[in-house]
C-alpha cells in the first residue's frame, strides 16, 4: 500500500524526518500540507488537530457506510447489507458469548469500539493517511470513555452501596472486613490501571507498527537516494501484512478487554 506512496515527491522528506524530533513517520496529507503551507493558519490548525482530523474522516466514512447499508433493508441481504449484518451478528455473538444474556445492552458500545479502533488502526496503511490511534491522546480518550462507562454501569447496576461493596472486595466475614483497608486501595488502583494499560497497549502497538513501516520506507528511500529520483525500494512491504494482523488483534484485544471489564463490574450470578 505504501508502494503508491513511493512515487510521492515528498517521500524524500522521510529520510530527513527520521532524525528529527519524535519517532519517524510516513508523511500524510496533513504533514504534506503543513510542509507546503506552514505559514498559513488552516495548515497550522490541521497540523495541530491532525489526529482529530483523521478520526473525523473515519467517523464520516463509517457513518456513510452504515447509512448506505441500512438505507433500504431487504429481507434477503445483499452486498453491503449482507456484510454489515455479518459484522453486527459476529460482534453480537462475541459480546453475548462473554457477557451472557444481558450483554446485548452493551453490544452497540463495544461493537462500535471494535469497528472504530479497527478502522483507525488500518487507516494508517492507506497512503497519505495516518492512524489516529498511534497518538496517545486518541487511545486515552477511548480508554477514558470505556472507564467512565464501566464505572457508570457499576453504579447503575450494583447501586452505590453495592458499588462500594464491590470495591471493598465483597466482605462477608470477619477476615473479609479486616481485609477491607487493604482491598479498597488495591481495587481502586487496579481500576485506574485498566484505562492506562488499555490506552498504552493500543498506542504502543500501533505507533510501533507505524514507526517500523516508516523506518523501512526511509531505509528504502535512502538506499536509492544517489539516483536523485523520487523513488524508493518498498522494503516495508512485508511489514504491512504484519501491521494488518496487529491492527485486527489490537482492536480485538481492546474490545474484548473492555467486555471483560464490563463482566467484572456486572453483578455475578454466583454471589
Amino acid at each position: 500500500m505504501h508502494l503508491l506512496l513511493n512515487v510521492f515527491p515528498v517521500v524524500m522528506t522521510v529520510a530527513e524526518r527520521a532524525g528529527a524530533e519524535g519517532p519517524p513517520e510516513v508523511p500524510n496529507i496533513v504533514t504534506i500540507l503543513y510542509d507546503q503551507f506552514s505559514s498559513y493558519g488552516f495548515a497550522q490548525f490541521l497540523h495541530h488537530w491532525e489526529n482529530v482530523f483523521f478520526s473525523v474522516l473515519i467517523a464520516i466514512l463509517l457513518g456513510v457506510v452504515s447509512y448506505v447499508a441500512s438505507r433500504r433493508p431487504a429481507v434477503i441481504p445483499r452486498g453491503l447489507q449482507n456484510f454489515m449484518e455479518w459484522v453486527v451478528e459476529g460482534l453480537n455473538s462475541f459480546v453475548c458469548g462473554i457477557l451472557g444474556r444481558e450483554g446485548s445492552r452493551y453490544v452497540p458500545f463495544l461493537g462500535t469500539l471494535f469497528i472504530y479502533i479497527l478502522c483507525m488502526n488500518l487507516f494508517g496503511l492507506i497512503p497519505g493517511m495516518k492512524s489516529p490511534s498511534s497518538s496517545i491522546d486518541t487511545t486515552a480518550a477511548l480508554a477514558i470513555t470505556v472507564f467512565a462507562y464501566v464505572q457508570y454501569t457499576g453504579v447503575r447496576r450494583l447501586g452505590i452501596l453495592g458499588y462500594l461493596d464491590h470495591f471493598a472486595g465483597n466482605p462477608r466475614d470477619v477476615i473479609g472486613i479486616l481485609l477491607v483497608p487493604l482491598m479498597f486501595p488495591l481495587h481502586i488502583i487496579s481500576e485506574l490501571a485498566k484505562p492506562l494499560s488499555l490506552s498504552l497497549r493500543l498506542f504502543g502497538n500501533i505507533l510501533g507498527e507505524d514507526v517500523l513501516i516508516a523506518v523501512f520506507v526511509g531505509l528504502g528511500v535512502t538506499m536509492v537516494a544517489f539516483l536523485h529520483l523520487p523513488v524508493g525500494i518498498p522494503l516495508h512491504f512485508p511489514f504491512v501484512f504484519l501491521a494488518m494482523l496487529t491492527s485486527v488483534v489490537q482492536a480485538l484485544v481492546f474490545a474484548s478487554l473492555s467486555t471483560i471489564y464490563f463482566l467484572m463490574m456486572l453483578p455475578h450470578e454466583e454471589h
Binding site: 488537530w49 489526529n51 482529530v52 478520526s55 473525523v56 473515519i58 467517523a59 463509517l62 457513518g63 452504515s66 447509512y67 447499508a69 441500512s70 433493508p73 454489515m84 449484518e85 453486527v88 451478528e89 453480537n92 446485548s104 453490544v107 452497540p108 458500545f109 461493537g111 462500535t112 469497528i115 472504530y116 489516529p132 497518538s135 491522546d137 486518541t138 486515552a140 480518550a141 477511548l142 477514558i144 470513555t145
Partner: peptide
C-alpha cells in the same frame, strides 16, 4: 485533543447506534 477525541467517539457511537446497530440488530 483528548476531549475532542472523546466527543468524536461519542458522535461515532451515536451514528453507528442510529444507522448500524439498531436497524441491523
Amino acid at each position: 485533543q483528548i476531549v475532542a477525541q472523546i466527543i468524536g467517539f461519542l458522535v461515532v457511537l451515536w451514528i453507528m447506534n442510529r444507522f448500524a446497530w439498531k436497524p441491523f440488530l
